[in-house]
């Protein structure tokens, strides 16, 4: 299908640890259409970041990726050469990271770091690349962009650095942008700005975006589709509307109950809480990984839960037809 930009099929990430193999990502599948925003949500340690790094082939050495198919614009990258991956990375697929403070090289000016990928992938001259960099810095809302090119990362605030990172990711006009918790490390006031910027750019440039976050408030605002991850698996996936209107999986329900809603949440009242902690992902995991924290848990949950919901708008992994 030509309108699917990213098709992930059966992706697993295993990390060898002294205590055994940690199954960080367990056989997940999803796809993103051109121009679509998919949000991957879940608690810390549920495998969101590992998923994004696995797609970009940037996993740390200890982590091993397995996948049936990793299709980018119809091309299977599962067994692609390093050279081929490098030709796509930073060019047609780009990534923004969580930590803008450390994601830029302290030894080089931001201009130097901005033009690098463009010169490489587009064979552009330095002046062409600088022109493009100035244009994009303006686009991400950085004033007096031309002067900024000569500055070093340490001279910029966290918010500005993340804007630079966004501009850097957009240099070659990618088809897919992966943003791994791009606002988590920023001040709350800056978070909203950066998020709006990302959403606007995504719409304007028609880029497909995989946004990784643990903040459902963000999801409701900018996602077309949502995939909820729990303990390395996608437990529910669907359109933002369907998922927020009638969450089917008890975990999704729990997450949504944790968001304060103006008007409905009473000041001083209790917010929703999901009791317990994420289970260990080391060793074999049998049955539903959420059952220890689930108020609907039954004996049958010790067996692998079925995938329910055949429509494109919503599917979930639970023995219950409808938890809500």
């Amino acid at each position: 299908m030509s309108d699917t930009i990213l098709g992930v099929d059966g992706l697993s990430v295993d990390i060898a640890t002294p205590r055994g193999t940690l199954h960080a990502v367990r056989d997940i599948s999803f796809s993103i259409k051109r121009g679509e925003t998919l949000c991957l949500v879940g608690e810390s340690g549920c495998g969101k970041s590992m998923t994004s790094l696995a797609i970009m082939d940037l996993l740390p050495k200890a982590a091993k990726r397995q996948t049936r198919r990793l299709a980018f614009a119809g091309e299977d990258l599962a067994g692609a050469s390093k050279r081929r991956i490098n030709a796509l990375r930073g060019n047609r697929m780009a990534m923004i990271f969580q930590e803008p403070m450390t994601a830029l090289n302290p030894a080089y000016t931001i201009g130097n770091q901005l033009i690098e990928a463009y010169r490489l992938h587009r064979n552009a001259s330095e002046s062409e690349a600088r022109e493009r960099a100035v244009f994009l810095l303006g686009k991400v809302g950085i004033a007096s962009a031309a002067e900024r090119l000569g500055q070093y990362p340490h001279q910029l605030s966290g918010g500005l650095r993340q804007r630079v990172m966004i501009a850097m990711a957009l240099m070659c006009g990618p088809d897919l942008l992966i943003a791994d918790e791009p606002t988590t490390a920023l001040d709350v006031t800056i978070q909203a700005q950066i998020l709006r910027l990302l959403a606007d750019l995504q719409r304007e440039l028609g880029i497909a975006m995989l946004l990784i976050t643990h903040d459902l408030g963000i999801v409701a605002r900018i996602a077309d589709r949502v995939a909820v991850m729990y303990a390395g698996q996608i437990v529910e996936e669907g359109t933002t509307e369907a998922l927020f209107r009638s969450p089917k999986h008890p975990y999704t329900r729990g997450l949504i109950d944790c968001i304060p809603v103006p008007g409905r949440t009473v000041p001083g009242g209790r917010l929703g809480v999901i009791p317990g902690v994420v289970p260990s992902l080391v060793g074999d995991i049998r049955g539903c990984s959420f059952r220890d924290r689930c108020s609907f848990a039954q004996d049958i949950c010790a067996q692998a839960p079925p995938m329910r919901g055949t429509t494109d708008s919503q599917s979930w992994r639970c023995i219950l037809e409808n938890a809500a």
């Binding site: 390093k82 994601a103 992938h121």
Partner: peptide, 26 residues
Amino acid sequence: SADYIRTARAKGLPAGKVIFKHALRN
């Protein structure tokens, strides 16, 4: 193992450039 090395790799730079430009300099 620094974040900016991951950034450099995410740009699609060849290994030599990542090692000698981005890593060795620091």
